[in-house]
Simulated scan of single mutants.
Amino acid sequence: MAMQSHGDSDDVMSEINVTPLVDVMLVLLVVFIVTAPLLTNAIHVNLPKTDETAPPEIKEAVNVSVDNQGKVFIDKREITLESVEPELKSLKANDPDLSLHLHADQGVNYGIVAKVMASIERAGISKLAVLTNVQ
């Protein structure tokens, strides 16, 4: 018998058989499901009992504000531009870990804000946050 060639049998099959891939993925899923609870290395210990302690006191930051007319405020108290540095130095003397929030109106002259920031730096305050609105 001679071998007969059918015209369609010589074509390359271009379809992917996904059944073995699904089988492998299911096996991996089962392996992960079984081993996941075993991966927690929790060591059970009996912790000692103590009295409750108060949480550390959270210090409020001092607000320095510059309005649209160039007036400077420290915690809603109006001060002159020249007295910003001495006021901040006295606050820093009372609280060495002092932090500031600087609020400046968008219509204020940049030079005034720069002078306030320079006064803050000369007062020795390193914790400064410049607050803005997020759009």
Rank of each mutant, 00 (worst) to 15 (best):
A104M: 07
V116R: 06
H101V: 06
K115Y: 07
A123I: 09
A114W: 09
A114E: 15
Y110T: 08
I112G: 01
L102T: 00
Q106Y: 13
S99T: 08
E121M: 05
G124N: 07
K127L: 11
Q106C: 00
I125S: 04
K115C: 03
Q106S: 12
D105P: 00
G124L: 10
V108T: 11
R122A: 14
L100R: 11
E121T: 12
K127S: 12
V113K: 13
V113S: 08
K115T: 15
H103R: 11
L98E: 05
D105R: 01
H101F: 12
I120L: 02
S99K: 14
N109Q: 08
G124S: 07
G124R: 07
Q106P: 09
G111F: 03
S126F: 11
K115G: 07
L102D: 06
A104P: 05
Y110N: 07
L100I: 15
G107T: 12
Q106F: 12
V113H: 06
Y110D: 10
S126H: 12
A104Y: 05
I112Q: 01
I112H: 01
E121L: 06
G124Y: 10
D105S: 01
A114P: 01
S99L: 04
K115Q: 15
L98T: 02
G107D: 13
A104F: 03
S99Q: 12
V113F: 03
I112M: 00
I125C: 05
A114Q: 15
N109I: 01
V116Y: 11
V108A: 05
N109W: 00
A123F: 08
L100W: 13
H101R: 09
Q106M: 08
G124Q: 09
D105Q: 02
S119D: 15
L102M: 10
S119C: 05
L98Q: 03
R122N: 15
I125R: 06
N109P: 00
H103F: 15
G124M: 09
L98M: 05
G124H: 09
K127E: 14
A123M: 10
V108P: 06
L102C: 04
V108N: 03
V113Y: 05
H103K: 12
S126L: 08
G107K: 15
G124A: 04
D105I: 01
L98A: 03
R122T: 11
